[in-house]
Each structure stands twice: as C-alpha cells, then as structure tokens.
Design a protein around this nucleic acid. Structure first.
Lengths: 142, 142
DNA sequence: ATACGGGTTAGAGCGCGCTCTAAGTCAAGA
DNA sequence: TCTTGACTTAGAGCGCGCTCTAACCCGTAT
C-alpha cells in the first residue's frame, strides 16, 4: 500500500503520515524501488491506536516515548503499561471535568428556556458597573 | 479588586486576564485614578463560566461571539441559547469518543497485565516486515 | 514524446492560546 | 527622599500539531 492509499484508509493526510514518520511516531517505512513508501496493512492498527491516544489528549512527546518503547519491544511492557495506566487516569479525570461542565451547560441552557425568561443573574451583564467614577470614563467602543 | 487579586481568585494569570480583556472575552474593566483595573467580584462568575467553555473545548473565537452577545444583552438570548445547545451536543459527542477510547485503553492495559504476557499482536512490532526486498535496504538507524 | 498523477525531500508557515518582555507609572513604607 | 512592588501598555515570542511549498522523480497512458 502506498502513502495515498494509507492516507485514505487511516484518515490521516499523506503530509501527516510523513510527519509522523519523521518525528518517530510511525516506524520508518520500507521503500519500493522508486523510493516510495510501501506499507503493510498492519500499520493501520498502530495508527488507529495513535488516534486513540491523540483523541484522549496525550501529547505527542508522550506518544513518542510509547512508540519508542514499542519499537524496543520485549522488556518494555511494564513501562508501557505504566504509561497507559497513568494516561488512563488522566483521561478519567478529564472525563469527570467534562461531565461536570456539561451539567453546567445543561442548567444554563435550561435557564434560557425556563418559564422565567430572566437570567439567573450570572449571565446578564452586571447592571452597568460604575464604581469609583474617577476621571473621564468613556465607554470605549469595542 | 485589583488584577493580582483577581488572578489569585480566578486561577488565571494577570497576563491572561489582560489578554482576555484585549480580545474582548472580558469586558473592558473600569480603571481607578491610577489607571489600574478595578474589578467587581461578579466578574468571577463570568470567568468561571468561560473556564467551563474552555474546558469543554470551545474555541476562543466562539467564546468571543458568545461574549459579544452577552454584552449586547437583551434580545440575544435565543442566539446564545442556540450556541450553547450546539456546543453541548459537540461536548456530548466528544465525551462519547473519550469513553470509547477509554475502553480501548482499559483493554490494552488488561492485555499487558493478562495471564498471557504475550500481546494480542497489535502491539508488538510486526515481525520485521521485509516485503519487496528491492535494492539495498539498510535499516537506517533512528 | 509528452503529459499526468502520483510519489519524494527539506524546510517554511500557520492557527491557536497563551506567556513574556521592556519600559514606564504610581502609592505606600522605611 | 528613596526603594519596593504591583500595576500599565504595546508588542514580541513560544510550544503545539500539523499543513503546505518548492523543486524534483517516476511509471503509465495517450
């Protein structure tokens, strides 16, 4: 499979695939007689996993660490596992934050829809703050 | 409240607070006789809400739209509500993606811990791909 | 023969969201 | 009076993760 095909199948752009190889996220690909990358379908599984790491917010520098361990292979399992466990915990924490914020969004939306069209105060601009009216305080258009 | 105090209380840096004002996320703050910003505690509620939007991944340009509507005040409720509803839907979708990826992480971790120390294949580096062995294919150290 | 649609490289550029710097002002305390 | 520390502004700089450009190469179809 050449890079264009892999791009289609993986959802990454060819540019991004080359970039990932350059930085070491993807293993250096075999080249055919014309120096063109020739991929085995098995790379798709790795790319999909990378996508999971990215989706869950792992920074590239950490993915690189993981990828390097993976390439070293045997003997690195414990460390890889620890990385994933730490990452999973961060993802769980992030998930909890998102859920909390989602609740806030929901109640805010409910506020807009509520029988009482008036906001629960914390949305309306505070009634023209004008404390310490010192000097010429023009409104300054933005 | 001056900017340092607000920074402490809001968790934003003073730099970031000024930046937010500059771009329009925070309303232009009243200045005291020495041109120093003087905040009303009510701003904290708005900043906290901005934090929710940021946590849930809303781009600043969208927050700006929302902030502008908020400042226009009356008559913009419907649009603000629609924005939040669309955003909420995106957050829910993202949440679902995260949860799916979390499952993958969990099973991957389980694989590392499993009774069978051998990976379910898709983690081990594929057994030295060497298809189309054309030309001098040096391993090229990385 | 030539045009086309892929591919190759090194390296520049970009959008985002801050984050920091430089040079200056001001008020309070020793 | 002098120092200190918190503030002011305009604007530069940064880390991230791509994304694109330029110039070139190659194999196939017309």
């Amino acid at each position: 499979m050449k890079i264009g095909e892999l791009a289609k199948r993986s959802g990454l752009s060819a540019h991004t695939i080359r970039y990932y190889e350059r930085i070491g996220l993807l293993p250096y690909a075999d080249r055919d007689s014309s120096s063109q990358r020739d991929y085995d379908a098995s790379i798709l599984i790795w790319i999909e996993f990378l996508g999971r790491l990215r989706t869950t917010g792992m920074p590239i520098r950490d993915m690189l660490r993981y990828a390097a361990l993976r390439e070293r292979g045997a003997g690195t399992e414990a460390e890889r596992r620890e990385m994933l466990e730490r990452h999973r915990d961060r993802v769980r924490a992030h998930l909890a934050e998102l859920e909390a914020s989602l609740l806030v969004l929901d109640s805010k939306i409910a506020g807009y829809a509520g029988p009482d069209q008036r906001m629960k105060d914390y949305d309306a601009t505070p009634p023209v703050r004008r404390r310490k009216p010192v000097g010429a305080r023009t409104a300054r258009a933005r």
